[in-house]
């Protein structure tokens, strides 16, 4: 069975249903991307997995454990890390304090993981005591990832990590995600930058109006004439 298995999920906000019958699976160590037009419900999929939306039906299983209807504070203990798109650091806390908050549910800050995160993002070690809110967008994005990695999750969900980054930083960001995935962490990525995301991932889902439209390997989706025309701008 897959690490993450979403089947026939219906979810939304209050009375408003956004997702309809969504299926999604991520295997251990796999790199999966969700692409689709604005308003397709890509972010809502992630929020629903993390228990932040109104659950309306279907199921979410993680690591052979049904987690639909769980609250976020319980889901975080199962091994899912989540980096939301906006406001994903605590601006008035220092870089170090942000990372400490990432390990809040542990009794103490795991030094070895901290070391690894500093190895991966050296800028975070350099700026340990700087307030997160005073860092650039790219640095904040790295801090947000670092925070989510403090619990050494089996699955890392990233919501548009390249949004708002300068073009020359976007490639760098994708490289970092590759590295995290290469180390064995499964990645679920929502991206506006669909072509690049599909090129990098193992498998991709095209989501339209809250429903699955296409599922295939990233390369196959990139090669598909229909997908190219409708979602990748030709």
């Amino acid at each position: 069975m897959a690490l993450l298995e979403v089947s026939s999920l219906d979810a939304g906000y209050g009375d408003l249903q956004i997702l309809e019958d969504v299926d999604l699976a991520v295997d251990a160590g796999e790199y999966v991307t969700i692409v689709g037009p604005n308003g397709a419900g890509k972010s809502t999929v992630m929020k629903s997995i993390f228990g932040l939306t109104t659950y309306m039906g279907g199921s979410v299983d993680f690591d052979d454990q049904e987690i639909s209807g769980y609250r976020p504070e319980d889901i975080i203990t199962t091994g899912i890390g989540y980096v939301p798109q906006n406001d994903n650091v605590f601006p008035s806390l220092s870089v170090m304090e942000n990372l400490e908050m990432g390990a809040y549910i542990l009794d103490e800050v795991p030094e070895d993981r901290l070391e690894r995160i500093f190895d991966r993002f050296p800028i975070l070690e350099e700026r340990k005591s700087q307030k997160a809110g005073t860092m650039s967008g790219g640095q904040q994005q790295m801090l947000a990832m670092g925070r989510a990695l403090m619990l050494d999750p089996d699955l890392l969900m990233l919501d548009e990590p390249s949004a708002g980054l300068a073009p020359d930083l976007v490639d760098d960001m994708f490289d970092r995600i590759d590295e995290i995935n290469d180390d064995g962490t499964a990645v679920l990525l929502v991206e506006q930058n669909a072509k690049e995301a599909l090129r990098r991932c193992d498998r991709g889902y095209v989501l339209v109006q809250g429903q699955n439209r296409y599922v295939d390997s990233g390369d196959a989706l990139l090669a598909d004439e229909q997908v190219r025309q409708d979602f990748l701008g030709g």
Partner: peptide, 23 residues
């Protein structure tokens, strides 16, 4: 203290505190 930092974190961003596992 951890409590104090989590209070500042929550005053910064309640939603993020929630998904970080802060009770």
């Amino acid at each position: 203290t951890k409590l104090g930092k989590s209070m500042r974190a929550m005053s910064d961003n309640k939603d993020l505190a929630l998904i970080t596992g802060i009770p």
